[in-house]
């Protein structure tokens, strides 16, 4: 047999595939963060880092606890949440309307694109002083800042999403004589949904940034105001407690959006 004749000269073909494949390693992140926090805690306790510049994780947790017990925590959170939800909803609703108009009709598109291009790059927080003049120092100016910051990216995400709806699906709808509003509701809207939801992710983080910035400029309550006043008083443990709150808020919003995406885009 051939194999016997080859005996002694046979080598295995070397394997060259492998790598470039990511697998799930769930525990790794937990171990890393636990380690990081432990090193941080030890560094502060051993005295090698001043607790004024970097308070220990335990003191941050303690500060959070005190805040919760005193009741101030809820006031800050509820004020911030109100501005965030109200501003984001307002900006999103207006952005969806403008984005749809720009996605469907030529004249709104022709007017809207240069308008959006000119105003989108302005950091909206620069407009807060003007908005305060218009709406006063109260809630309206903060909500308007957030709404304005959310409006433009939502508009862009919406009309790009509509651009991405395959034209053949719209032709199909027309070939079955579907009325205009049925095509819009059953073909254009669901087809643009992936793009719109991707926009939500961006606008959620923009809203959070603008919230903190606006609260730092002129607010008595709210997470941003709390962080600023803690910093002014050198209460770094409270300051970091506020930062932790923001991180948690961001995570919760992100998780909520992921759920919404999984549900609305379950066909993908």
């Amino acid at each position: 047999m051939a194999s016997q004749a080859l005996e002694g000269r046979l080598r295995e073909v070397p394997f060259r595939g492998g790598g470039f494949v990511l697998v799930r390693r769930r525990g790794a992140a937990v171990i890393f963060f636990a380690g990081l926090i432990a090193v941080w805690e030890l560094a502060v306790r051993s005295g090698s880092v001043s607790p004024l510049f970097l308070p220990a994780p335990t003191s941050v947790v303690h500060a959070l606890y005190d805040l919760a017990v005193s009741g101030a925590l809820w006031r800050h959170i509820s004020d911030s949440l109100f501005r965030l939800v109200f501003g984001w909803t307002l900006g999103t609703a207006a952005g969806l309307v403008a984005g749809f108009a720009m996605g469907i009709w030529s004249i709104p598109r022709a007017i809207g694109v240069p308008f959006v291009s000119a105003l989108f790059p302005i950091p909206k927080i620069a407009l807060l002083p003007l908005l305060i003049l218009w709406f006063g120092i109260g809630e309206a100016s903060k909500v308007a800042t957030i709404a304005l910051g959310v409006f433009f990216p939502t508009t862009i995400a919406t009309y790009s999403g509509i651009d991405g709806v395959p034209r053949n699906l719209i032709r199909m709808g027309q070939s079955f004589d579907l009325p205009w509003h049925v095509i819009l509701k059953n073909i254009v809207l669901p087809g643009a949904m992936p793009g719109i939801l991707a926009g939500f992710r961006i606008t959620a983080s923009i809203a959070l940034i603008l919230l903190v910035a606006a609260e730092m400029i002129g607010a008595q309550y709210g997470i941003g105001a709390f962080i600023l006043s803690a910093g002014n008083l050198m209460q770094t443990d409270q300051l970091l407690a506020g930062v932790v709150l923001l991180s948690v808020l961001g995570l919760v919003i992100g998780a909520g959006l992921s759920r919404l995406e999984r549900w609305l885009l379950r066909w993908r």
């Binding site: 053949n168 699906l169 032709r171 199909m172 709808g173 070939s175 079955f176 004589d177 579907l178 009325p179 049925v182 059953n186 073909i187 669901p190 087809g191 949904m193 885009l265 066909w267 993908r268």
Partner: peptide, 29 residues
């Protein structure tokens, strides 16, 4: 309901609807 009806090369199915939903589409209005 639609005397001239197309069948498309690329099927033109709505990916977010089930088979039944796609078939139901031209009846709904």
């Amino acid at each position: 309901l639609n005397p001239f009806t197309y069948v498309f090369q690329d099927f033109a199915l709505l990916p977010w609807r089930t088979v039944e939903g796609n078939v139901a589409l031209p009846l709904e209005h």
